[in-house]
Nucleic acid binder design. Structure first.
Lengths: 204, 204
DNA sequence: GTCATCATGTAAGCCGTTACATGATTGC
DNA sequence: GCAATCATGTAACGGCTTACATGATGAC
């Protein structure tokens, strides 16, 4: 979950831990906020796995031109030349995603777990999935939600349930929320299929 | 969280572990499902704390009349008299809430944490809260959600954000969902205030 | 000169999970 | 007789949190 968020964000741009934390938090209106105590060890883990590696910061708009790719040795040299005292607080470690990391991200996006948080993240990064993978993701989630809706129907009306207006209101609101989610998924699915159809046409 | 669910359910009726698990799961359309590996230790913990105690099952509509309180010794005796071979699978341990447990439940309902799951459970059992506590619960949640909405406004429009239609759609849908939640809370709050007003009138 | 913010990390602990072990009852 | 379901528990492990430790920079 955390790793999905990290890799997804790094895939777009190199970032250091502190910044990653902020981005992850606002990736889901604070619902996905995580602590440093889990972020830094996660980064270390990903680095050990080779999914991520520390790189020189070309963070400030222009610090050293750096025309695109500047291989590992040079980057490492530059990083070591200024351990303390720069222009920033305690030395930042800027991370970038590796090729292995991109594969790792693909794996995480494909994995079948679909709890609320995981699904949110997967949608946030589903642009990195092939169209078929996206469609499958949306449809799996849809099936899951319709299942929950069916469950709500049959489970309703236990003793008490009827008398307690709060519980009744809660269930009603839940049902509406799920239906709202399903309607949204249906729009996503429809537009995905439309794109797919278009792509097919262009091929022929 | 687990303890809140257990105490909330036991406050209404005595139940055994296996049944509790099912009830907890459908208290939130499977979003709150928990495993036995956390349920049974939690029950043991609550029993050790004196919030809950094992009682004789008067589970089948009428088994033994049991006029109200029948103290621990007798209950234990009855329970031990039939370890295997009854009418049920492996001997069930039926739990009931104690007075300490009711206090414990009140404490848990009052505690300030308000993540999605905790809030869901608190609403499910808010009938056990005094009217003022309910109102406070709803309003704290409302404030939290409006905060998230404000955050979404300012954080939008990072690089990429604009171009990625999935991320845009996700944020849009999130915003709608939160607004839907707030509207629901507003109805709850209004009706709570109406009840409160009525209660006040009746007093005078 | 002191406070807020930026920045990285470690250690202890909580709360939950999966996997395993056990066994009785019911229905086919 | 065998599988599904009911029923209770333990052990190992995972992922995240809080609290702590450290320190630099910039603003006032």
């Amino acid at each position: 979950m955390l790793e999905l968020a990290i890799l997804g964000l790094l895939r777009e741009q190199e970032l250091h831990g502190y910044e990653l934390k902020k981005r992850i938090a606002d990736l889901g209106g604070n619902r996905l906020a995580i602590s440093f105590g889990s972020l830094y060890p996660a980064l270390a883990r990903l680095e050990a796995l080779g999914s991520v590696k520390a790189v020189e910061a070309h963070v400030a708009p222009v610090s050293i031109p750096m025309t695109g790719s500047l291989a590992g040795e040079a980057a490492a040299f530059l990083r070591k030349r200024r351990p303390p005292v720069e222009r920033t607080g305690r030395a930042r470690k800027v991370y970038g995603i590796t090729e292995r990391g991109e594969q790792h991200l693909n794996d995480l996006l494909a994995d079948p777990s679909l709890d609320d948080k995981a699904f949110h993240l997967k949608v946030a990064f589903c642009r990195y999935l092939p169209p078929a993978g996206r469609l499958e993701l949306f449809e799996r989630r849809r099936a899951q939600l319709t299942g929950q809706l069916a469950g709500a129907h049959t489970s309703t009306r236990r003793r008490g349930e009827q008398r307690d207006s709060y519980l009744r209101s809660l269930r009603e609101h839940d049902t509406e929320s799920i239906q709202h989610d399903i309607a949204w998924l249906d729009r996503l699915i429809a537009s995905e299929r439309a794109d797919h159809g278009q792509a097919q046409e262009e091929k022929s």
